[in-house]
Amino acid sequence: MEKKNNWRAWLYLAPMLILMIVFIFYPLFNAFVISFYKDYQPLLNQRAAGITFTNYTFVWNNYFFKAALKNTFVLAFVSVPVSIVLSLLIAVALNSIPKVKAFFQTVFFLPYVTNGIAVGMAFAVIFNKNYGLFNAFLDWFGIEAYDWIGSTATWGRQITALMIFTIWDSLAFKILVFASGLTNIDKQYYDAAKIDAASRSTVFKRITVPLLSPLILYISITSMIGALKAYNSVIGLFGDKLGGKPRDMITIVAFVYQYRAQYANIGYYSYAAAAAVTLFLITLFFSALQAIVSRKRIHY
């Protein structure tokens, strides 16, 4: 492009750029800076008294932050793989019933267009100890009624309920992506495999999954990032207590939010920022790890 025309390009980019700078780039940068401020209380008109690393040591040693790390990691490393495997199987199953595929695709996609908080509240009813569907279902197998999300629920039961909800909620998008990926696979590979006497499971393992591997990578990175940011699901299922017992199901984002907004609405901005930067580093680490591992495993 000729130089004199450059201002036009900038002009067209300006609306988006300005919004991004004001609402994304500057806050990102600022959060990083704030995380090193000492005694920073903007709502009390108290400016930073210097630079310090103690915000990080406070956060990393905080009991709730450790609980949040544990909950978030369990969500990310259990629910993400489970939901990927489930959605892949469902997508493949859908693909083998072409006549009703469109109908079921719509059914499976509905959760995606439904508000997460509302669905969470529905799930809260499902997991209710006394009149919930889940306990009624377990009752058929002679399993006694447990408290899943109430104040007497153990950590294990709460996280189980949270994961069931998270997995169900995240299936829709994955199924959609995998289903469209499957329709892009040349049917001749399947004909060839049929003639090569491949069983159904061989076809799935050695043809479908490898050919979908770029999509599987994409889905696993995006949903890993999504799971590390879990917050909505906790609010939806447990309300703003963040657990059957308060803060049992706290996540990193919930931790950030609490330190930003609570404590008499004054908040500890620097602690929240330090936790947020920590989350950013964790996310960066796992995304990079996945990208590197997959570069070795996806070759085509």
Binding site: Q188, Y189, D191, A192, R206, P210, L211, Y300
Partner: peptide
């Protein structure tokens, strides 16, 4: 097959 249908990842 006409376009061979070789498995690209193998």
């Amino acid at each position: 097959f006409q376009n061979y249908a070789l498995y690209p990842h193998m």
